Simulated scan of single mutants.
Amino acid sequence: MFPAQSLAEVMLDRGWSVALSTDARGARYAGGFPDVVPVEVVSSATPARGGAAGRLAAPLRIGAGVAAAWTRFRRDRPGVVVGFGGYPAIPALSAAAAMKLPRLIHEQNGVLGRVNQLFARRVHAVACGTWPADLPGGVEGVHTGNPVRGAVLDRAGAPYIPPGDYPMSVLVLGGSQGARILSDVVPAALAALPDAMRTHLRVSHQARSEDVDRVVAAYDAAGIAADIQTFFEDVPNRMADAQLVIARSGASTVADIGVIGRPSILVPLASAIRDEQTANARALVDAGAAILLPESKLTPDSLAQQVELILSNEQGAQQMARAALSTAIPDAADRLADLVQSIATTHGRTP
């Protein structure tokens, strides 16, 4: 939702009207969109979930969603339709293709998701947030970068306070999936740090609701000051205050780290079918801004070693922060908006 929200904000500033088409689940994550953006809920589904019954029902639900999107598009006749991947995008993109409306997709990750793979040859442009991107044969991408929210841009390039003999902040972000392993390993790893370093730590740790109690207990037992929540409303501020970020390498997280400019230890989601999170991390790792630690090698000892390496090296941490900034595309939302307007102008009409 973050790239879609960012694009909506820019398009509104440019005088466009914007509507969000998503399913009921996606609508629950649309709270950050400007109030003037109507949320049009249509049915959708994925055959990959819900067992045999879910697979049988999916085409019917998607068909109903396409019909609803078609009806709304006939009423509103959008100048351009932009898909951001995931099965909630299927109805709108299908209707737009059937109606021959100007359309494009944006892919956050270094590997196209299933839905974007399905539509890559049926749109007028494929905008890529991560570069290089693994694209289907014959498809050319446009590197726009991953748009970040205004709250992230407000902290872009915030001065970095290197680690030292004073309070140091560590931000732990598990992402929307697979956060359990970070809740298992990170508290134990930080507890294993030398006493002189551990006593200075101030940790912000995002954990699943079912893990919160044990994560709180683990930090308390280690004597580490920690704020554990299921979701942080102020991630950009916490990231700007951090000496180190430990996180999954989801595309939005990677973009935020680059724009704000912070050293990081990235743990790609091992269960990702296309291993897209490893691809996402590539730019930060290659720049020397991040350490990649695969799940297969993630243990309290291995993580403690990497954390100590960064937090005990003031100059090295500063260099990592500068290297992160070198990967950033802070104007990604404007680049994407330019592409959207170009597609609308070339293949349809302007508002």
Rank of each mutant, 00 (worst) to 15 (best):
R214E: 13
V186C: 11
D165H: 12
Q177A: 11
T299M: 08
D286I: 07
Q229D: 14
M168H: 01
G175P: 09
A247R: 02
R214A: 14
Q243Y: 06
D286Y: 06
D256P: 05
L266G: 00
G223Q: 04
D301W: 06
I260R: 01
V235S: 01
T253H: 11
V245W: 00
G261K: 03
N280L: 08
A192Y: 04
R208Q: 13
A270W: 05
P194T: 04
P167K: 07
A247W: 03
L303A: 07
L293E: 05
G157M: 03
I265T: 07
S176D: 08
V235G: 00
G258L: 04
E295N: 12
S249N: 08
P159S: 10
V235L: 06
S252N: 15
A222V: 10
A251T: 07
S169I: 10
L303N: 04
V170M: 11
Q277T: 12
L269K: 00
A279K: 10
A279P: 05
D301G: 06
N280F: 06
R238K: 15
Q243I: 05
V212E: 12
D301E: 15
S249P: 05
A240N: 00
S302Y: 11
T278M: 12
L269V: 15
G175R: 09
D256I: 07
R208I: 01
L201G: 00
N280A: 10
Q206K: 08
T299F: 07
L182H: 04
E295F: 06
G261E: 04
G178D: 13
D286G: 11
D234V: 10
G223C: 07
A242T: 05
A189P: 02
F232M: 05
V186P: 01
D286T: 14
L269F: 15
R180G: 08
S252V: 15
D184L: 11
R274F: 14
I246W: 01
V212K: 10
L298M: 15
G223E: 04
S296P: 07
Y160W: 10
G164R: 03
R180V: 02
F231T: 04
V212C: 08
P268V: 11
R214F: 08
A270E: 12
T278G: 14
D301K: 14
L201F: 02
D301H: 12
S204C: 14
P167R: 09
G174E: 01
D241G: 15
I291L: 14
T230K: 00
R198D: 06
S204E: 12
S302P: 05
R180P: 01
S264R: 04
A196P: 02
I291D: 03
I260Y: 07
V170P: 01
S204P: 02
E276V: 13
G250Q: 09
D195V: 12
A290H: 04
D184E: 15
R238E: 02
D195R: 13
I265R: 02
I181L: 15
A225R: 14
A247F: 07
A242H: 03
G223D: 03
D195L: 12
A189Q: 08
L190W: 09
I291C: 01
G174I: 01
A240D: 00
G157Q: 02
M239R: 05
P294G: 09
G178T: 08
R202E: 11
S302L: 12
P268R: 02
P263K: 02
H205G: 03
